[in-house]
């Protein structure tokens, strides 16, 4: 039976070892757990995940322990004779029905609390409409009217063609980079209104703790507020199968300080004004002259 449990013990040990922060190297081997993320919600989700994980580990130790004990001790080959009278015991059956119920309640309560917080989309300070396309995203800042499309960057696109001959390891942020990232301010409650234009997509950034389906005909709500000290670039991608380019519509969120964000928004606003000079529009790289869905489709069709 040692052989039997060896792979699991090894896996568990590997898991435990690599859970320690020191072992979480930059290599892919260390990428084995959920990120803590940079929002209050993502951290609560992480805590819930770890709580449930350790509950499962504890139950596993007990249940697998009894199984392994039985397999080691009660062996026919050792001449053990079975106790055929042990076929029913109401008391123990009631106990092992009630204990799981209690454990489940213990996990369900924090889960429900967090869920209620996730659902509380009231009083946003900034509202962004997110529209999923095959295969890219459109972001509209509803208060200021700034709007642009965001799709896979050209280097990843080239490298991800069938037999491109380009080593993905040489492409920075392979499949995790876009031409125009979503720029947001830190320390601000941002409401996302998520929908789609063609098929169902799903907008997911693990570090923000947000995943919400983008569904044609529906406007789903989700919110996040990046911790004030956690400015940075956070990456995610579409998580609902949406056709040929499903793997190739990443999401990049660039969380900046409020001042930097306002400066960025002002420049975008100026560039996107209907009266803005044509050459200025083409010169501005980010978000200028958003392509129509048809253009976007054409661009996506390249892949």
């Amino acid at each position: 039976m040692v052989q039997k449990i060896a792979p699991k013990l090894a896996a568990l040990t590997a898991l435990l070892v690599s859970l320690s922060p020191a072992a979480r190297a930059q290599s892919g081997w260390g990428e084995i757990n959920m990120p803590r993320g940079v929002t209050m919600i993502s951290q609560k989700i992480y805590d819930l995940h770890m709580l449930c994980f350790w509950v499962c580990v504890a139950i596993g130790i007990v249940v697998f322990g009894v199984m392994i004990y039985s397999m080691v001790v009660f062996r026919h080959s050792k001449g053990v004779v079975a106790d055929t009278t042990l076929v029913h015991n109401t008391r123990i059956e009631v106990i092992w029905t009630i204990i799981p119920v209690c454990i489940l309640i213990g996990v369900a309560v924090p889960a429900a609390r967090t869920l209620i917080q996730i659902s509380d989309t009231r009083n946003p300070e900034l509202t962004i409409k997110v529209i999923g396309y095959q295969w890219g995203w459109q972001y509209q800042y509803l208060e200021s009217g700034v709007s642009f499309f965001s799709k896979l960057d050209a280097r990843s696109n080239a490298a991800s063609q069938l037999d491109s001959g380009i080593d993905p390891n040489t492409v920075p942020n392979y499949l995790r980079d876009v031409d125009h990232p979503l720029v947001v301010p830190v320390g601000t409650k941002i409401l996302l209104l998520i929908t789609a234009d063609d098929v169902i997509h799903s907008w997911w950034v693990p570090d923000l703790g947000v995943k919400m389906d983008a569904i044609p005909g529906y406007i789903n709500e989700a919110w996040f507020a990046v911790d004030a000290d956690k400015a940075g670039v956070y990456r995610g991608q579409c998580t609902e199968l949406c056709g040929r380019g499903h793997a190739f519509m990443p999401i990049v969120v660039d969380a900046r300080s409020k001042a930097d964000f306002n400066a960025w928004l002002d420049s975008e606003e100026a560039a996107q004004k209907p009266g803005a000079p044509a050459q200025a529009t083409t010169a501005a790289p980010a978000g200028a002259a958003p392509p129509t869905p048809a253009q976007l489709a054409e661009a996506s069709a390249v892949r």
């Binding site: 609560k44 995940h49 996990v107 869920l115």
Partner: peptide, 15 residues
């Protein structure tokens, strides 16, 4: 069981 927890499922779903 982990997947049943809705908040955690927001991270697990579709992965």
């Amino acid at each position: 069981l982990m997947l049943a927890l809705v908040p955690a499922d927001y991270e697990y779903h579709g992965t």
